[in-house]
Design a protein around this nucleic acid. Structure first.
Length: 201
DNA sequence: AACGAAGTCAACCGCTAATTT
DNA sequence: GAAATTAGCGGTTGACTTCGT
């Protein structure tokens, strides 16, 4: 697959490109025993000539248990659309609301399916969307949010009564895609979304 | 059947945030 | 508190597949 170290070079050349079944197996086995942390160590100890980042990505997107692949249902699609409207290109947050789905998959799905779909349905409204989700929304928004007491990816506190995305989106006890949890999205969309967004900026 | 265009998606890259030393 | 290391994110790329001519 990827170029291997021929032994003559001192510098270790990492494998790149598609993962082989053997690599997958090594990674899965290692994580099963030792857990998924310290990816650099995982890569070395699992005997993978890969960087930690690559291992992490592979695990999260493919090897992790309970991963759903393909066949995104109408309900899921609807949820993605709604969440994207709310959150912009914050794929990991969106993915967090879709059990078994990964940010990468949702991002790809968005770029290849939904983006066009939306442009077809309402080509003019793209400007509105841009206002909500500007070109570099993820970092910008997360900075705003972070500084206001919302820690993304960790336990945020909501001491000032500010809106806490994580808390709000924490439906671990209620969100099963069976019901798809669309009610909460609907509820939220009923709120004065614009005023909330303006307040945040 | 052959070929190019368009679509899809796995993986990489660069960056920031969070954590550890 | 500073520096180094690790984790995580979103954007982008490129290989592969499918579709249309």
């Amino acid at each position: 697959m990827a170029p291997k170290n021929d032994g003559s070079a001192k510098k270790v050349v990492m494998n790149k490109g598609a993962w082989t079944a053997e690599e997958d197996q090594k990674l899965s086995q290692y994580i099963e025993i030792h857990g998924a942390k310290r990816w650099k160590t995982v890569a070395v100890k699992a005997g993978l000539n890969r960087c930690g980042k690559s291992c992490r990505l592979r695990w999260l997107n493919y090897l992790r248990p309970n991963i759903k692949r393909g066949n995104i249902s109408d309900a899921e699609e609807d949820l993605i659309l709604r969440l994207h409207k709310l959150l912009g290109n914050r794929w990991s947050l969106i993915a967090g609301r879709l059990p078994g789905r990964t940010d990468n998959e949702i991002k790809n799905y968005w770029n290849s399916h939904l983006c066009k779909k939306i442009n077809k349905e309402k080509p003019i409204e793209t400007s509105t969307e841009k206002e909500i989700a500007p070109e570099k929304p993820s970092r910008v928004i997360s900075h705003h949010v972070d500084t206001e007491g919302v820690k993304l990816g960790s336990t945020g506190n909501n001491s000032e009564g500010n809106f806490d995305v994580n808390e709000f989106l924490d439906f671990t006890s209620t969100t099963e895609l069976g019901s798809c949890g669309l009610e909460w999205v609907n509820k939220f969309l009923e709120l004065d979304e614009d005023s909330w967004l303006i307040e945040k900026s």
